[in-house]
Amino acid sequence: NKFNKEMRNAYWEILHLPNLNEEQKNAFIQSLYDDPSQSANLLAEAKKLNDAQA
């Protein structure tokens, strides 16, 4: 299933973003579980936030 793979990839990438705190990571990961079809968008948002907090 495409979403499972996308979701897993997004999950791991978000988990390893160095500039997000636990609360931010948890919020993105919760959103992933709530709507796996948004994995790519959530990952993009997480990366933007990560870069902004660098």
Rank of each mutant, 00 (worst) to 15 (best):
N1P: 02
K2E: 15
K2W: 12
K2D: 15
F3N: 12
F3M: 03
F3D: 10
F3L: 09
N4G: 02
N4E: 08
N4A: 01
N4D: 15
N4Q: 04
K5Y: 05
K5E: 15
K5T: 03
E6D: 14
E6T: 02
E6R: 01
E6V: 04
E6G: 00
M7A: 14
M7W: 15
M7K: 01
M7E: 13
M7N: 03
M7P: 01
R8K: 10
R8Y: 04
R8D: 02
N9L: 11
N9R: 15
N9E: 15
A10P: 00
A10I: 04
A10T: 09
Y11F: 07
Y11P: 00
Y11S: 05
W12P: 01
W12F: 14
W12D: 10
E13P: 00
E13Y: 12
I14N: 00
I14P: 00
L15G: 03
L15D: 02
H16Y: 10
L17I: 02
L17W: 03
L17N: 01
L17R: 02
L17Y: 07
N19H: 08
N19I: 08
N19M: 05
N19D: 05
N19R: 03
N21V: 13
N21F: 13
N21W: 11
N21S: 11
N21E: 04
E22I: 06
E22W: 07
E22Q: 08
E22D: 05
E22K: 09
E23R: 15
E23Y: 09
E23I: 11
E23N: 12
Q24G: 03
Q24W: 08
Q24S: 06
Q24I: 04
K25W: 01
K25R: 13
K25T: 11
N26G: 08
N26P: 02
N26V: 05
N26A: 15
N26F: 07
N26D: 12
N26R: 15
A27L: 13
A27V: 08
F28Y: 10
F28M: 08
F28H: 04
I29W: 15
I29M: 03
I29E: 02
I29F: 15
Q30L: 11
Q30M: 09
Q30K: 11
Q30N: 08
S31K: 14
S31L: 06
S31P: 04
S31D: 14
L32Q: 02
L32E: 00
Y33F: 15
Y33H: 04
Y33N: 02
Y33K: 03
D34S: 10
D35A: 08
D35Q: 10
D35R: 08
P36R: 04
P36N: 06
P36K: 05
S37N: 08
S37E: 12
Q38S: 08
Q38L: 11
Q38H: 11
S39L: 12
S39R: 15
S39K: 04
S39D: 01
S39P: 03
S39H: 15
S39Y: 10
S39G: 05
A40M: 13
N41V: 03
N41W: 05
N41E: 07
N41M: 12
N41A: 09
N41K: 13
L42E: 03
L42Q: 06
L42R: 07
L42P: 02
L42N: 06
L42S: 07
L42A: 08
L43P: 01
L43M: 08
L43D: 01
A44Y: 07
A44P: 02
E45A: 14
E45Q: 15
E45G: 14
E45H: 06
E45F: 08
A46I: 03
A46H: 00
A46E: 00
A46G: 08
A46L: 01
K47R: 05
K47A: 04
K47G: 04
K48L: 14
K48Y: 12
K48R: 13
K48F: 10
L49P: 01
L49I: 05
L49G: 05
L49V: 12
N50H: 04
N50T: 02
N50G: 02
N50S: 11
D51H: 04
D51I: 10
D51T: 15
D51Y: 12
D51N: 04
D51K: 12
D51E: 11
A52K: 13
A52T: 09
Q53A: 06
Q53I: 12
Q53D: 07
A54L: 06
A54P: 13
A54N: 13
A54Y: 07
A54H: 09
A54T: 14
A54R: 01
